[in-house]
Design a protein around this nucleic acid. Structure first.
Length: 190
DNA sequence: GATGTCGACGTGG
DNA sequence: CCACGTCGACATC
């Protein structure tokens, strides 16, 4: 069952994310809209945590979902601070195609601070030449940050694209101290 | 060297 | 059909 049953705001130091849950687990995570990434800077000063605007919504959640949400809230805060996001709630990725799920699986093997190129991911799937399709699959990732699509860069260390906002990609990489600057240092752009 | 163009790939509009 | 979070090869200045 991949239907979205609950949509819940997630308060973090970087603004209010949005989580959606199905009966199987977390099936979606969206970046804050109220705090545009345009105001983000790669420096260290953090934003104040905002109270959850969901109001009484949280109280209406079934215990199981509420537990997942508590785990997610903590995991997301850790991830945004560049630390290991654990424990995690279960993910419901049943909406992805076979290829997309295979891609997301590879993404989850990229260690914090590490990166892969779209081409390398394609190669890891036994599909050299599908690098572009990998890019599309990354863009279709329903749970950014926790499924680290931001750790996939263009060949030669170029920053590549990011559906939400490239600033988030840069910020996340900064926070995990990723060694993403390519071999030639100059090979990246905003 | 610095640019263009082209084809391959999976998915959704 | 087309347009994408790409890449590498090759052509041409």
């Amino acid at each position: 069952m991949d239907r979205v049953l609950y949509s819940v705001p997630v308060a973090t130091p970087d603004g209010e994310f949005g989580a959606t849950y199905s009966a199987l687990g977390l099936c979606g995570l969206t970046f804050p809209v109220s705090q545009p990434a345009a105001t983000l800077s790669p420096d260290r000063d953090r934003r104040r945590a905002r109270p959850c605007s969901g109001g009484t919504a949280l109280l209406e959640l079934p215990p199981r979902i509420r537990n997942w949400h508590a785990e997610l809230t903590e995991a997301l805060a850790k991830a945004l601070a560049g630390r290991e996001p654990r424990p995690l709630p279960p993910f419901d990725l049943s909406r992805g195609t076979h290829f997309q799920r295979a891609v997301w699986q590879v993404l989850r093997t990229i260690k914090r601070g590490g990166t892969m190129s779209y081409g390398e991911v394609a190669k890891a799937l036994g599909r050299p030449g599908a690098s572009r399709a990998v890019g599309s699959a990354c863009g279709a990732n329903p749970i950014p940050v926790l499924i680290p699509c931001h750790r996939v860069l263009g060949a030669g260390g170029k920053i590549g694209g990011f559906s939400a906002d490239p600033r988030w990609k840069l910020l996340l990489l900064e926070r995990e101290r990723a060694d993403w600057r390519g071999a030639q240092g100059a090979g990246w752009q905003a």
